[in-house]
Each structure stands twice: as C-alpha cells, then as structure tokens.
C-alpha cells in the first residue's frame, strides 16, 4: 500500500488562512475583554491593548458562586441530554434506515413535519407546565433538546449510505438480533457521525438560554448562558426603555464592553476543549472496510 504522507502545501496554506480567520475574532474578543474601558471609548477595539485591565474578570469573579453553580447546571444538563439524545435519535434513525421496516415513509414524514410546523411558545409552555409539570426542574432544560428532526435525518442518511445492507443481512444470518446489530455493528461503524451529531447536541444544550428564561424561576437552576445573557438583556432592555419610562430615576448603566466580552469568553471557554476530545472518533479505519477485513 502506497500512501502519500506529504500534504499538498497549498492545502496547508489555504487551511491556515481559513483557520486564522476563524481564530482572530476570538483573539479580538479576548483582547477587548482585557482592555481598559477608557481606551475602548477613545480608540475602539484593538488586537493589543495599550493598557491591560482585568477589571471585567474581577467583576465576574465577584459573582463566582453563581457562575460555578450555573456551570454545574449546564454541564449536568448537557451530559445527560447528549447521552440520552444520541441513544433515542440514533435508535429511531436506525429503524428509519431499514428498508424492510414498514411505514418507514410515514414515520419519516412524522419526523419531518415537526421540523417545519410548531405550535409556538404558549402551547409549548402549557404542555410543559400543565401536562408534564417540569417547570423549575432540570428536566425542563433537558427534554426540549432530546430529539430533533435534523439530527435524525443526518444519522439516517449515514446509516443508509455508509453501511452496506449486506452487512446487516449477514449479521442476521449469524443469528444477531436487531438490537445486537444496532449496538455492536451499526454504532461502532458510525462513530464519526455520532461524534458529529453529539457535538451539535452539546453545542445546542450549552448555548441554550431561552429554555431557562421560560421555565426556570429558581435562580439556583439557571443555566450558564442564561445567567450571562440576562445581564446583557436586562441592560439593553433598560436602555431601550430609558426614555419611555423614567430617565430621571432609572439610572441605566450599560455593562462595560469588556465585561460583555469577558462573559463570552467564560461561556465559550469549556466548549473549545470539547471538539478535540471528540476528534478521536474521526479517525479513519473504523470503516466498513476495516470491519469486513
């Protein structure tokens, strides 16, 4: 087997430029978060501030107990959510991928319909509070992200296209049940797509703040993104109403720009380490060929 171990330098160059364009804004966010507020007003954003100022982080540290608890909430929700979601989603996708499964078209349509039509905020709220009674629990944060048509269809497509039907057939002949086929043949063969969908699910759980806004009144259960977001939302709301309500008494102070950016850093930070961790499932070799061989 002859493998070319050298990558085309143009590809490297292109990807380097692209990666930089993705990374530079992050650098900028970080630098703004440590720029002195007066410098920001005078000179605008810069890639290397004249005066470093960690005030924004000190300000956040002040609230560290709440932030730590919110991290706990978000991590718990994300971990449980991702595991359960991957199980449910891939199991359903597997059924949908099997051509001999009757009504697979009807069921696909059942899934697809939910991607376009939704009842809106109020019915959603009524179902969760009146029927499921999950308001002010972690369940309210977990359930909404458990399943989504998009993920089901992506996984289904992978199952149909990268796993030859013959493999399933031969497993059957060997006496393996559907469950066994699914758990010990299909899943190991689909690690790249599971990692991809897992990543997407992690990101959507991690970034979700709206569910907290709607269902959580107990501030001990606020998710990290909501905790950070609401400061910004409160400020921008107060700003927008300042002249409507009360400019005289409502002393509206915007959070410093650096604090905004520091919040973004705090929120994104841990996510940056998730992908490298998942990347081990992107390794070649765990492919059909390897299994067959």
């Amino acid at each position: 087997m002859k493998t070319n171990n050298r990558t085309n330098p143009f590809i490297i160059l292109f990807l380097t430029v692209f990666s930089l364009s993705c990374l530079i804004p992050f650098w900028l966010v970080f630098m703004v978060s440590v720029t002195n507020e007066k410098d920001l007003t005078r000179h605008g954003y810069s890639f290397w501030p004249n005066h470093f100022d960690w005030e924004a982080y000190r300000y956040l540290l002040h609230d560290s107990a709440n932030i730590a608890r919110a991290y706990g909430v978000t991590i718990t929700v994300t971990v449980i959510g991702v595991v359960v979601s991957l199980l449910i989603t891939s199991a359903m996708a597997y059924s949908l991928s099997r051509t001999e499964f009757p009504y697979r078209n009807a069921l696909s349509f059942y899934v697809f319909f939910t991607m376009l039509f939704s009842g809106g905020l109020l019915p959603w709220y009524l179902v969760y509070t009146r029927f499921l009674h999950v308001q002010d629990t972690l369940l309210a944060l977990i359930i909404p992200g458990l399943i989504g048509g998009f993920n089901i269809f992506i996984i289904r497509t992978f199952f149909t296209n990268s796993i030859p039907p013959s493999l399933v057939e031969s497993a059957k002949i060997d006496g393996a049940s559907e469950y066994r086929t699914y758990f010990s043949i299909i899943i190991p063969l689909s690690l790249p797509v599971m990692a991809t969908i897992g990543l997407f699910t992690i990101v959507s759980y991690w970034n979700d703040w709206f569910t907290s806004l709607v269902f959580i009144n107990n501030e001990k259960l606020y998710s990290l993104q909501y905790l950070l977001n609401k400061t910004l939302m409160n400020a921008s709301f107060l700003q927008s109403i300042a002249n409507k309500a009360y400019s005289n008494t409502a002393n509206v102070t915007q959070p410093l720009e650096s604090i905004r950016m520091a919040m973004a850093m705090v929120a994104i930070g841990p996510l940056v380490f998730v992908f490298p961790f998942l990347q081990k499932y992107f390794i070649k070799g765990l492919t059909v060929g390897a299994v067959k061989g």
């Binding site: 109020l122 709220y125 609401k230 939302m233 409160n234 921008s236 107060l238």
Partner: peptide
C-alpha cells in the same frame, strides 16, 4: 428580570 419580562408575563397571563 427585565430581559425576560415580556415573554414571561405574557405566558403567565395566557396560562
């Protein structure tokens, strides 16, 4: 919270 006021009060009234 100010930022949640519109959504939350609407839902509280409607439900």
């Amino acid at each position: 919270d100010w930022g949640a006021w519109g959504d939350k009060t609407n839902l509280m009234m409607a439900s």
